[in-house]
Design a protein around this nucleic acid. Structure first.
Length: 417
DNA sequence: GACGAAACGATGCTTCCGTC
DNA sequence: GACGGAAGCATCGTTTCGTC
C-alpha cells in the first residue's frame, strides 16, 4: 500500500461499483412498509428499529414467494389445508406444539444471501429518500459488499452486509375437502403429506400470520387476490403484500406483535434455553424439535433433521459470518483509510438484525477497537507514535435495525433506527 | 469472449464441550 | 459414558474477477 498507486483508490472502486437500481414493485412495497413502521411508532410507541426489522422480513418474504410453484406444498389434515412452509415442519400445527416434518421451501443455495443483501439496499435507499437524504447506494465488488455515497458531505461508507430474515410467513390454501387414500381396501384420511397444489392459479392463497391471543398461538389467514393470469408474473407477491398491508395499521400491528414475540423467543431460546414459545419454531435457526416426535426423520448421516438448521442464521448471527465480517471490515479499513484523501471513508458491518445470540461473545470486545499504523514496529503506547499518526476505528458502525453501535458522527446521524 | 482462479453462500459432516 | 447443541471444517455449485 501507499504512494501514488493509491491516489485514486476510492474513485476506482466507485467507478467499478454498480448503482443499485430499484424495481418499481420493490420500491412500492418498501415504501408501504416503511410508512406503516413510522405510523406504528407514532401510534403504539414500538421502537422504530424493531418495526423496520419486522417489515424487512416481509420484503424478503415477497422475494421468497416469487418462487411459489405447484410443488412443495404440505397437506395438513388438522387444518384441512395445503401449506407452503419455510421451516421443516407444518407451521399451522407447530403453533399448537405439534411437529410434523415437511421439507421447507427455502430458496436454493446461493440465492438467499444475494437477494437479502440487495433488498437491504432497497430498504435503506427508501429510508434515505423518506428522510430526504440524497445518498447513492452501490453494489461493490470484492472485498466490498456495498458502498453508500453521501456526495454532499463527501462521505463514502464501505460496508460488509450480512442479512437474513428472522421469519418467513407460510402461505396457505384451504382444501375443499379432506384428502383420502385407500389402505388395505379401506378409505382413510391422509395424514400430513407432501402434495402438489394443482390449482394454484385460481386458488385463494392466504398469508398465515401467527397471532398470540389469551396465552395461545393461532393462525390468522389473510387472503391474497388469486394468482390467475399472473402465474408468470414474478412480481405478483410484491403487489399482493402491498395490497393487503397498505394503510392497514391493524393488520400490521398484529404482525408486529407476533414478530416481536418471535424475536424474543429466538433470543431466549439461546440465552435461557427456553424454547417454550410455539412461534419460536417458525424462526430461522430454531434447530431440532423439542420434544422430538418418534416419527421425526433421521438425517442420512448421523442425527436428525432440524426444523431450521442452526446455520440458517438470522441477520448477522452466524458465527462464521461474524468472523468473516470482522476481517472484511478490517481489510476495507486498512486498504482504504490510510491512503485515501478524496473521501471521508467509513467502514461498517450492516445487517437487518444484530447478532442477537452472539454479539456479546463475538463483537462486544471488538466494537470499540481502534488501530494505527506503526512502521517502526516498536510502539507500545499511543504516545510513542508520531503525534500526527492517525487513529482509525475498526468499526465506524455496527449497524442494524435492531441494535446500532455507531462510533462516528456521520453514522450516528444518518442511521438512527 | 474464453478461460482458470478465487470467492461466494449454503450445507453436510466432524469435533468439542457441557450436562446428565 | 451418552447425549445434544454449538461451532468448526470441508465441500458443493455458482458467480465474479483477472488475464490473455
Amino acid at each position: 500500500m501507499g504512494g501514488s498507486k493509491e491516489a485514486g483508490w476510492a474513485n476506482q472502486i466507485l467507478k467499478k461499483a454498480q448503482l443499485v437500481k430499484l424495481e418499481s414493485h420493490e420500491q412500492n412495497l418498501a415504501d408501504t412498509l416503511i410508512d406503516l413502521c413510522y405510523n406504528a411508532e407514532k401510534r403504539t410507541g414500538v421502537p422504530i428499529g424493531i418495526a423496520l426489522a419486522a417489515a424487512f422480513d416481509l420484503l424478503v418474504s415477497a422475494e421468497y414467494y416469487r418462487n411459489l410453484t405447484n410443488r412443495g406444498w404440505c397437506y395438513c389434515p388438522e387444518h384441512q389445508s395445503l401449506i407452503f412452509p419455510y421451516t421443516n415442519t407444518c407451521p399451522a400445527c407447530v403453533l399448537s406444539a405439534k411437529f410434523y416434518y415437511h421439507r421447507s421451501n427455502k430458496p436454493e443455495s446461493g440465492k438467499i444471501g444475494t437477494a437479502t443483501s440487495r433488498l437491504l439496499c432497497v430498504f435503506l435507499d427508501r429510508l434515505f429518500v423518506k428522510s430526504s437524504k440524497n445518498f447513492k447506494i452501490y453494489k461493490g465488488s470484492e472485498p466490498i459488499d456495498i458502498l453508500i455515497h453521501d456526495e454532499k458531505e463527501n462521505v463514502l461508507l464501505l460496508a460488509e452486509v450480512k442479512a437474513a430474515p428472522l421469519i418467513t410467513l407460510p402461505l396457505l390454501v384451504r382444501s375443499e375437502e379432506k384428502l383420502t387414500d385407500l389402505i388395505e381396501g379401506e378409505i382413510v384420511e391422509l395424514p400430513h403429506t407432501a402434495v402438489d397444489n394443482s390449482s394454484l392459479a385460481s386458488a385463494n392463497i392466504c398469508l398465515l400470520i401467527p397471532i398470540h391471543k389469551d396465552g395461545l398461538w393461532h393462525s390468522k389467514l389473510v387472503e391474497f387476490q388469486t394468482k390467475e393470469g399472473n402465474l408468470t408474473n414474478t412480481n405478483w407477491a410484491y403487489t399482493q403484500l402491498e395490497n393487503i398491508f397498505k394503510g392497514n395499521n391493524d393488520l400490521f400491528d398484529l404482525y408486529l406483535d407476533s414478530w416481536q414475540r418471535a424475536f424474543e423467543a429466538y433470543q431466549v431460546a439461546y440465552h435461557k434455553k427456553d424454547r417454550t414459545s410455539n412461534v419460536f419454531w417458525l424462526t430461522n435457526a430454531c434447530g431440532q424439535p423439542k420434544p422430538r416426535p418418534d416419527e421425526w426423520p433421521a438425517r442420512s448421516g448421523t442425527g436428525y433433521e432440524s426444523v431450521s438448521d442452526g446455520k440458517t442464521s438470522v441477520g448477522m448471527d452466524r458465527t462464521d459470518d461474524i468472523k468473516k465480517g470482522i476481517y472484511q471490515v478490517l481489510k476495507l479499513g486498512a486498504e482504504s483509510k490510510p491512503n485515501n484523501k478524496q473521501y471521508q471513508i467509513k467502514t461498517a458491518l450492516i445487517s437487518n438484525i444484530h447478532a442477537a445470540r452472539h454479539y456479546d461473545e463475538y463483537l462486544t470486545s471488538l466494537q470499540d477497537v481502534v488501530w494505527a499504523l506503526d512502521e517502526t514496529g516498536l510502539a507500545k503506547k499511543a504516545g510513542e507514535l508520531d503525534i500526527e499518526t492517525p487513529i482509525y476505528n475498526l468499526f465506524d458502525g455496527i449497524i442494524s435495525f435492531t441494535q446500532n453501535h455507531p462510533r462516528d458522527e456521520w453514522i450516528r446521524e444518518h442511521f438512527r433506527f
